[in-house]
């Protein structure tokens, strides 16, 4: 989902521009530090043409369920084909061109769009895929299946974060927007995951030597946890910042639509109060959501680490 200009609070849009520039800058440094002749980093022409490929591949679609079409964003695919860093640069370029040339997404919102799709989708997706692949044992099938799961997750995470950003900007109601967006994108994400799996299987079968470009490398789990926690903290800090800066835009009010009272009592409560109308401020809910995501992310990484160690024994 490419956010247009006008829906994001300018402070949030600028903050996400800064975060995006920092992370893309880091990716560029990682790229130029790589000295492997065959790696994508040393092949600017390959990166440019793969960017055009991602553009073209986004045309491919097929219906998943009534009214919802599965299609490819290609973030995880790019991360697998070129490696996470080069993949991030390519997706940044693609999203930038979509905004600048095709008005698909705003210019002030471009930082947010690159953050949601390029960084969370490609960098995050590729790193999560690596963790899952390692946890599953690192075989070819595991690596490709992990890409599928990460593809689905990247779509969900992108949609969720986009909605939270709109909520922070006061231009959507998170209690309705989040379930709606995640519900639709759960289906769209299936398309992304299945196409990613099929495309990687095809490439692995037809040209197995190409996929070594994106083969999992051994990054220490401690480092992954540090990176994951760092990103979660950054998001939490942003949420807190804007919650305090613009309480009016975040003021949650009780829902008056009759059918929503049905959602008052969930079957279980992980965080008491994390229910729809019960609390008067979205701030707490958002922070809990962010912390929750951080906890889940850390837990996945830790569990992957444990599973990988078990697998080796």
């Amino acid at each position: 989902m490419h956010l247009p200009d006008g829906f994001l609070a300018p402070q949030l849009a600028l903050a996400l521009w800064v975060a995006t520039a920092a992370i893309v800058g880091f990716a560029l440094r990682r790229l130029s530090a790589s000295s492997d002749e065959a790696s994508a980093a040393q092949r600017p022409i390959l990166m440019g043409i793969v960017g055009a490929f991602i553009f073209a591949a986004q045309l491919f679609n097929f219906p998943v369920a009534a009214g919802t079409s599965g299609h490819l964003l290609g973030g995880v695919l790019a991360g697998y084909l070129l490696g996470p860093w080069a993949g991030t640069i390519v997706m940044t370029t693609v999203i930038g061109i979509q905004a600048l040339i095709f008005q698909d997404g705003g210019l002030l919102a471009l930082g947010a769009n690159i953050f949601n799709m390029g960084i969370i989708g490609t960098l995050g997706g590729a790193l999560v895929a690596r963790s899952i692949a390692t946890a599953l044992g690192g075989s070819r099938v595991a690596t490709i299946a992990a890409a599928g799961v990460a593809g689905w997750l990247s779509v969900m995470a992108g949609a969720g974060v986009t909605t939270l950003q709109l909520g922070l900007s006061g231009t959507t109601d998170v209690s309705i927007g989040l379930p709606a967006m995640l519900g639709i994108h759960a289906l769209i994400g299936i398309g992304e995951g299945l196409i990613t799996i099929a495309a990687l299987t095809f490439i692995a079968t037809t040209a197995p030597d190409l996929l070594t470009l994106g083969a999992p490398t051994r990054a220490s789990a401690t480092r992954r946890i540090l990176v994951g926690s760092g990103i979660s903290l950054l998001v939490a800090a942003l949420a807190a910042l804007f919650a305090s800066a613009d309480p009016d835009g975040l003021q949650r009010v009780a829902l008056t639509l009759g059918f929503h009272t049905a959602a008052n009592t969930p079957p279980f409560e992980l965080f008491p109060g994390y229910t729809i109308p019960g609390i008067d401020s979205a701030t707490g809910t958002l922070l809990i959501a962010v912390v929750g995501v951080g906890i889940i992310f850390t837990a996945i990484l830790l569990l992957s680490r444990i599973a990988a160690r078990r697998g080796r024994q």
């Binding site: 599965g70 299945l194 196409i195 990613t196 099929a198 299987t201 037809t206």
Partner: peptide, 14 residues
């Protein structure tokens, strides 16, 4: 259907 589409994506990449 997803596999058919994925194969197209894969061959376009190649």
């Amino acid at each position: 259907r997803a596999r058919t589409t994925g194969n197209l994506v894969g061959s376009l990449f190649l």
